[in-house]
């Protein structure tokens, strides 16, 4: 009665209709939690989780490894930049300090009426017993034996040896050094002598001389080495022995001899 072909077409249409009806029915009952759903989810989801986690772990390792390499490179680059900046900073600081020192030297230069030659300390005394320094100016620049050497703080010493490009300066704290000096306030005269410490002794100050701690000691100019009025130091200790003609006085020099760098040689 019906051809085979027509039966097939009707069958397909029927399946489509049934499908549509079932879908319509299913659409009314969304998010069902049947036992099958639960079983499937319970069985598959952990595996998915495992796979996903493994993948994520691998991806993270991969990404973080490269990230760390990049971070390390970045870190090295920044470290380099910081080091450069530190060097730069140190250089600026050093320049600033040098400027400060040179400015002080210029001030001293303008204060002192004599012809003055700036010099730098290039060597120290090899022993702790003697106090001399080597400066980078010598006979070539006009330095000669006996010339006074000063710093912004005050008197440093005098030249004891002049060579072609260098000179040896005996510091006032050396035990062989002596300066004719006077107390600025009372004009009491004495001799400032060095000893093995960083201080000096102020000798031949009469017992009755009016001096007190903190008084400034200046050069008298009578020794023929140092011009008059150059600051030597401040009185730091006074003791009057029970007998004798003089007081025992110690003077703390204004110059810090542990940090000598730039000096001025008085050429005249």
């Amino acid at each position: 009665m019906f051809s085979k072909r027509l039966v097939r077409i009707l069958g397909v249409v029927l399946f489509v209709l049934i499908n549509i009806v079932l879908l319509s029915i299913s659409a009314k009952h969304t998010h069902r939690h049947t036992i099958i759903d639960r079983l499937v989810i319970a069985g598959v989801a952990p595996l998915q989780e495992c796979v996903i986690n493994t993948m994520r772990f691998c991806r993270n390792i991969w990404r973080h490894y490269f990230y760390l390499v990049e971070a390390r490179e970045e870190c090295d680059r920044i470290k380099g930049m910081i080091a450069k900046a530190e060097i730069e900073k140190s250089r600026y600081l050093e320049s600033e300090l040098a400027c400060e020192r040179l400015r002080e030297l210029l001030e001293v230069k303008s204060e002192v009426s004599h012809r003055i030659l700036p010099a730098q300390v290039v060597g120290l005394d090899p022993s702790g017993w003697f106090k001399t320094v080597i400066i980078n100016k010598g006979t070539k620049e006009g330095v000669s034996k006996g010339m006074a050497v000063i710093a912004p703080g005050g008197i440093v010493g005098h030249v004891v040896g002049a060579y072609y490009r260098y000179a040896k300066v005996l510091l006032i704290i050396d035990r062989n050094s002596a300066i004719d000096a006077l107390v600025q306030r009372t004009r009491s005269r004495g001799i400032v002598e060095g000893d093995t410490s960083e201080n000096c002794r102020f000798k031949y100050i009469a017992r009755k001389a009016d001096i007190k701690i903190g008084d400034i000691v200046i050069s008298s100019g009578l020794d023929g080495l140092f011009p008059k009025g150059l600051r030597v130091g401040a009185i730091s200790e006074i003791s009057v022995p029970p007998s004798g003609l003089f007081q025992e006085v110690r003077v703390r020099p204004f110059v810090d001899f542990t940090r000598l760098e730039e000096l001025l040689v008085i050429l005249e």
């Binding site: 005394d125 090899p126 022993s127 005996l170 050396d174």
Partner: peptide, 8 residues
């Protein structure tokens, strides 16, 4: 040399 450099 030491003598030359030193104040001794």
């Amino acid at each position: 040399i030491m003598d030359i450099l030193s104040g001794a």
